[in-house]
């Protein structure tokens, strides 16, 4: 990615923030390409059995896509925006996939492959639904959850993006995790 391209991406992100959804159309292919790029090129250490978290990939994609000298605050906002899209993209994609696989009847896919099959594990559609349900009661908590799980954002980043204290992020996240866990358990 050249400096020129990074400047372009930063510009697109600005446009998007300013309410021009079409900027996203140009942005998303770049983000995907970058995600693939990183995933393809970063070797895994044999001894470590350590995989990069996908959320970290998003994180890195953003870092590689925007200008290096982007401010901390801007960076947090961008991460937050990317996260919103990421959730939308992932959920849409999962929906299409489950429709393709199962001829329209979405059923759970087995997850956690290297823990054998955990039947009760929620899939992304369950999670999406649960976050929506939480959002209906408490928008801020749902937003924090989204930034945390879909964007891999850290407490201090979330705190900047949403203009709340880190303590609030921490408290809300603990509560939300329990709430979502309970919600998912009730539904499964």
């Amino acid at each position: 990615m050249t400096q020129q391209q990074r400047t372009r991406v930063t510009q697109l992100l600005h446009n998007w923030r300013d309410g021009r959804p079409e900027a996203l159309e140009e942005l998303m292919p770049l983000v995907y390409a970058e995600l693939e790029n990183i995933a393809r090129r970063e070797f895994r250490s044999e001894s470590a059995d350590h995989t990069l978290q996908p959320t970290a990939l998003i994180n890195e994609a953003v870092l590689r896509l925007v200008d290096n000298d982007i401010g901390w605050q801007d960076r947090c906002h961008f991460l937050a925006m990317m996260t919103t899209t990421m959730r939308r993209v992932l959920v849409d994609h999962a929906r299409r996939r489950s429709r393709e696989k199962r001829g329209g009847n979405a059923r759970k896919v087995t997850l956690l492959t290297n823990l054998a099959s955990v039947e009760t594990a929620p899939d992304i559609l369950d999670l999406d639904q649960a976050i929506d349900a939480l959002s209906a009661i408490d928008t801020r908590k749902a937003e924090i959850v989204q930034l945390h799980y879909f964007g891999g954002m850290k407490y201090n980043e979330i705190s900047v993006a949403l203009a709340i204290s880190e303590a609030t992020v921490d408290r809300d996240l603990r509560f939300s995790k329990a709430w979502l866990g309970d919600y998912l358990k009730q539904r499964s």
Partner: peptide
């Protein structure tokens, strides 16, 4: 009580996201 129970248990919320990303990377641009 339900929330406290849930808090004691592992809820693997990041796993579904991780899997969805994997799946997405494997199958984009339709």
């Amino acid at each position: 009580k339900r929330l406290l129970d849930a808090a004691q248990q592992e809820v693997t919320l990041s796993a579904p996201v991780a899997d969805a990303v994997d799946d997405l990377l494997a199958n984009e641009n339709r």
